[in-house]
Design a protein around this nucleic acid. Structure first.
Lengths: 254, 254
DNA sequence: AATACACATTTACGCAGCGTGAAGGTCAAT
DNA sequence: ATTGACCTTCACGCTGCGTAAATGTGTATT
């Protein structure tokens, strides 16, 4: 059986350009060239092409394939081993690359979360200052107008650095919380650590700390859907969990 | 601090050609060009180069980096995700490649093993001709000295080509057997195919075929530990499986 | 026989990211 | 003035073809 470029190309599932290229680089010469200059391939060339494509699929370069096929018995084995070795190295590199990309993603993700929390901080400010919430009202009733004004002032006078510290704290709270959730007990050490961090975080925003206000805020985290959604976005039940941890931390439960 | 190409190149650990190229494609333009046409880079460019190299290490193309750096906040995140996705796909491809290369190695290895089987054939010869085994004895008793001598002669007169054919057959038997093993029933079509191939293989070595000798050999495969080890080396139980298949094939069981 | 249309041919640019010259100017020191 | 270490701008080369462009052939239909 004899084939022209196109026929052979179709048979082998490559382009005719590829066959001409293989001819050009001497990888696969046609059996003969007919009177019109057409390349004519025979059975031997078909077999050879199959071999070429086989090694090509294994990721060998055309040059390597040429080497392997020109001296088949000797090199093929060793070439395969070396090739495998190279592929393994390549894979190791890729693994590392992927790890680095993932680290970068995580890093940026954290950065993004902080800008989310920026909004949240704004949201919180709105809550405290504009008296929209019942709890806002309650706080005002309980602690008076003066303290609320002081809080606003403190918030608005935060330096950039303090702001970043607060956000870093918030990120740590999240992390600690998510770890504590895995254990599942709000009286557990890790959960109490989260509550403590939360207190520290609060102190960036509140003019003074007291346990019942902290506990009240914690309760609000559960009852206000906006807060709840914020805390639950990664893991449902986080708001409740944090509330319970804080209630225990403040000693206002059990 | 200002740098010429070379200085910056040294600082960043790239070649000056690279910096010129980055200038050429507009990825990193020098801060200014001095009166002699020298490229002069400033602090801003140093920082930018750091970013470029960072993303380059993550495997991004220069074009992608250009995109990311020109509109940092917006694209970077998504680009990272997409990039990760692409890397994962690439890894999957690599895995497959490696698997295929290893398969090929194993296949060629088996070819090499055929020269092990050369030993094995020698081993077999020894067994049959030198009357070491009970089964060897039995065969002699059953079929007489003459036929054994004929077998030896046939074996020693095998051409290279016949020998290779026989080895190819042996390889096919192995393959068929391992597939049949997955199904698990020695009366199954594939297992019977293996038995048939085994008969054909035998006929390269035996002067004449008969069912009971075939069945006897099959039994020996199980009872002689050397044969058993040979057949079981890839998958325990293969010797028994082959024996059962051959017993059914020869009709000497059930 | 003319036309159409699918095939064939060679030549050559393009791709990514530089390496590696070549041919020539500039700077500082000798 | 010369040297030697810099700098500059071309421009080709690497891989494995894709994708024209320009031109010739083979076969079927009108």
């Amino acid at each position: 059986m004899e084939y022209t470029v196109q026929k052979l190309a179709q048979l082998a599932g490559v382009s005719s350009r590829t066959l001409r290229y293989y001819d050009e680089i001497g990888l696969l010469k046609p059996a003969r060239i007919n009177s019109s200059g057409y390349r004519i391939y025979g059975q031997k060339e078909v077999d050879c092409l199959q071999q070429i494509l086989f090694y090509r699929e294994l990721g060998f370069s055309l040059e390597q394939i040429q080497g392997i096929l020109s001296d088949p018995a000797f090199d093929a084995q060793q070439a395969l081993y070396q090739h495998r070795q190279k592929l393994l190295e390549k894979r190791a590199q890729l693994e590392e690359l992927i790890l680095n990309v993932e680290k970068t993603i995580a890093f940026k993700e954290r950065g993004k979360q902080m800008s989310d929390q920026e909004k949240f901080a704004g949201f919180k400010k709105q809550m405290i200052t504009e008296n929209e919430m019942n709890y806002g009202k309650e706080v005002r009733e309980k602690y008076g107008e003066k303290i609320v004004e002081q809080a606003n002032e403190k918030f608005e006078n935060m330096t950039e650095k303090q702001y970043e510290e607060a956000n870093a704290l918030a990120a740590e709270i999240n992390k600690t919380l998510s770890m504590a959730m895995k254990i599942g007990d709000p009286s557990n050490e890790l959960a109490q650590q989260a509550a403590k961090l939360h207190k520290q975080w609060l102190m960036y925003y509140w003019p003074e700390y007291n346990k019942s206000a902290h506990a009240g805020l914690a309760q609000m985290y559960v009852e206000d859907e906006r807060f709840k959604a914020f805390y639950d976005k990664e893991q449902p039940g986080t708001a409740e969990f944090l509330r319970d941890a804080i209630l225990i931390f403040t000693g206002l439960k059990q």
